[in-house]
């Protein structure tokens, strides 16, 4: 069937080679990329608004970042330098496979250095190093609708967004305080973008919310299963919702990073043995490595001059 149809093609046949390669740059076909770019442009024009798009099947399961990958594929150019992080880390399965995917399908340069990257795809974290003009941060989003768990009807949540009717969001925060004495939501913490739409910043820890505010980089959010794209343009106000008497606060860590000694970063807990041994290290691996390369040492750093060695 296919062979028969091929003979009737209205355009000249080309050999698989250079042209097809250009045609299929970064995995998606040009029509799909155009469709996604349109959605992205609309999302940038209406900060925080969820734009529906015709999400494609991707060669990975839902939940592994199909939305983020499609957004990345649509905005990636041959000169881009790509960095992919998963929970702040450059070397976990998800990050490695997505980075390899684009190295293979687009032939772009990849990096683990935040500073060198022009495009960063992330799940959960925003790099510790401040982003700059011209960089794009792409988030993988599982559930784009911040009102979902309070209002299951999509028709109704769309209306609530249209009318900027966000009392429900505060009901959720109220419940937190009533139950835990403080706002216990620590990730996917709802934000108001440019004074209008309330947005779910995907499962990033609320620690990173302040970094979204007036960020110099363009922030794009892709939800593949839910078929939504939304965006925060550079230098846009992003305000975390709160109560007057319970203002928004980020979590703080009692100790510095055990490897690089950084204070004020977001730390991961690493269990060391089955006798309660543990260490806290930077979740942003690139940030941690750079600091160690610059000579900073934490209490448990492996090399000789570390404070931990003398114990």
């Amino acid at each position: 069937m296919r062979a028969a149809m091929r003979d009737d093609l209205p355009f000249p046949r080309t050999e698989v080679g250079k042209e097809t390669e250009a045609y299929n740059f970064a995995y998606l076909d040009e029509q799909t990329k155009r469709m996604i770019r349109r959605a992205i442009l609309k999302a940038i024009a209406i900060p925080g608004y969820q734009v529906p798009f015709a999400s494609r099947e991707m060669p990975m399961p839902y939940g592994w970042g199909t939305g983020g990958v499609q957004v990345t594929a649509a905005v990636l150019g041959p000169d881009d330098v790509l960095k992919v992080i998963d929970q702040g880390s450059d070397d976990t399965t998800n990050a490695v496979s997505i980075r390899r995917f684009f190295a293979k399908t687009a032939g772009v340069a990849t990096t683990t250095k935040t500073r060198e990257a022009t495009l960063i795809q992330t799940r959960h974290r925003i790099p510790e190093e401040p982003l700059r003009d011209g960089q794009i941060l792409v988030y993988q989003v599982p559930i784009p609708e911040p009102l979902r768990f309070l209002e299951p009807r999509e028709t109704e949540t769309r209306k609530l967004h249209a009318l900027a009717d966000y009392g429900l969001m505060h009901v959720k925060l109220y419940e937190d305080i009533a139950r835990h004495g403080h706002i216990a939501t620590t990730y996917a913490y709802p934000v108001e973008v440019a004074g209008r739409y309330v947005m779910d910043p995907s499962p990033t820890p609320k620690f990173d919310n302040p970094k979204m505010d007036m960020c110099a980089a363009l922030q794009l959010f892709g939800a593949g299963r839910e078929k939504r794209i939304y965006a925060v343009p550079p230098h846009t106000r992003v305000r975390s919702l709160d109560f007057e008497d319970h203002p928004f606060r980020i979590q703080t860590f009692k100790q510095p990073c055990a490897l690089c000694g950084a204070e004020g970063g977001y730390l991961d807990e690493v269990v060391l043995d089955d006798r309660g041994g543990r260490m806290f290290v930077c979740s942003d691996t690139d940030f941690c490595e750079e600091r160690r390369a610059a000579g900073h040492r934490g209490a448990m750093a492996a090399d000789g001059d570390a404070a931990g060695e003398t114990r």
Partner: peptide, 25 residues
């Protein structure tokens, strides 16, 4: 709202019309 506490149920209308002070609500 069956999944929301009694206080949250009563406070919902207040929050919907702009109350943002937990103690008052």
């Amino acid at each position: 709202r069956m999944g929301v506490s009694a206080g949250g149920n009563v406070g919902e209308r207040l929050m919907a019309v702009g109350a943002r002070h937990y103690g008052n609500i």
